[in-house]
Simulated assay, not measured.
Amino acid sequence: MTIDLDELLKVRARFDAEAREGAQADAPPASVERAGAVVRHVAPEPGWNSVLWSDLDEGTADAEIAAQVAFFTGRGCPEFEWKLYDYDRPADLGDRLRAAGFVPEPPETLMVGLVSELAKLPVEPPEGITLRVVTDEAGVDLMMRVHTGAFGRERPRLREQVLGKLREEPETIAAVLAMAGDTPVSAARMEMQPGLAFAGLWGGGTVPEWRGRGIYRLLVAHRARLAAELGIDYLQVDASDDSRPILERLGFGVLGVTVPYMWTGNAS
C-alpha cells in the first residue's frame, strides 16, 4: 500500500525533525552538533563528516556555507558533505554550494515505506540463494567485495564505519549478505537508532550477473521484518535510479530528492 500525499508530507516533516535536525551520531567517537542554523555530524578520520540540516535564507546562506567550510577544514577533514534536499531553503542553496567549491554527486530519491506493510512481503529466497547475517570482520569483507562488484569502486572508509558499528553499537545496525554457495552476490544493511521511527536502508547492491532475480526485493523484505520486530514505523531509502522503480512497486513513496554536495578543497 503506497502512502498518500498528505501522509507523505507529515512523514517528511517527522523525518526532518527526527533524522536530520534531531540526528544522532552514527557511532562513537562521532558526535552531532547544533551550530546556530545548521546541524552537523562530526567524526575523526576515517569517519563521516556532514552538514545534515540547515535553516537558512538568502541573507544567511553564503556566510553559513563559509563558516562550515572553515570549521571542517580547520579540523583537518580532507572532505565533508553537505546533504542537500530539494525542499531546503533557500531555493538556490545548491547553486550557492557550487559557487563555494562544492561538487554535487548524482541525485537520489528520498523514499519512505511503511514497515507494517513491507513486513508482509514474501522472504523466500530465489533458487540457489541463502541469506547470511553479517556479524564480524569476515562478513564485512564479503560485503565490501559485493559493493566493489556492484558499484565499481572500493570503499575502505565504509568498511571501517560498518566494523565500528558492529563492534561498538551492534544494536544500531543489521547487515546481511545474499550468498550463492560460498560466493557473496548481494549485500545490504539497515541502520537505526533506539526510539526513532525511521530506519535507513543502505548499500543495497547486487553484482551484475545476479540482477533481475528478486534478490534486492528479498533483502528489503528481510530488513522490513527485522524493523517490525524492533517496533520501527518507517524505512527510509536514498534511492538510485535503478532502485527507485523496484521500491515504488513495493509501496515506497517519494519525499523528495537529495544531492550530496562534497567539499574536497580541490574544486576549481
Rank of each mutant, 00 (worst) to 15 (best):
M1G: 15
D6I: 11
E7C: 13
L8N: 04
R14V: 10
F15S: 02
D16H: 09
A23P: 07
A25S: 10
D26C: 05
A30I: 03
S31H: 13
R34V: 13
R34L: 13
A37R: 14
V38F: 03
V39F: 11
H41I: 07
A43G: 04
P44H: 05
E45Y: 15
T60P: 01
D62L: 07
E64H: 01
V69C: 00
F71R: 06
T73H: 06
F80H: 00
E81C: 10
K83P: 00
Y87M: 11
L93S: 00
R96M: 04
L97V: 00
A99E: 08
L110S: 06
M111I: 12
G113R: 05
G113N: 05
L114P: 07
E117Y: 14
A119P: 04
I129Y: 06
I129T: 02
L131C: 03
A138W: 11
G139M: 03
D141F: 06
R145P: 02
T148A: 15
A150Y: 00
F151H: 08
F151L: 05
G164M: 08
K165W: 05
R167W: 11
I173G: 00
M179K: 07
G181A: 09
T183C: 11
V185Y: 02
A187T: 02
A188W: 01
A188N: 03
M190G: 06
G214N: 10
I215E: 09
Y216L: 03
L219F: 01
H222Q: 12
H222S: 04
R225I: 01
G231W: 01
L235I: 00
Q236L: 12
A239R: 02
D242V: 14
P245F: 05
E248T: 13
G251A: 05
G253T: 02
P260T: 13
M262H: 12
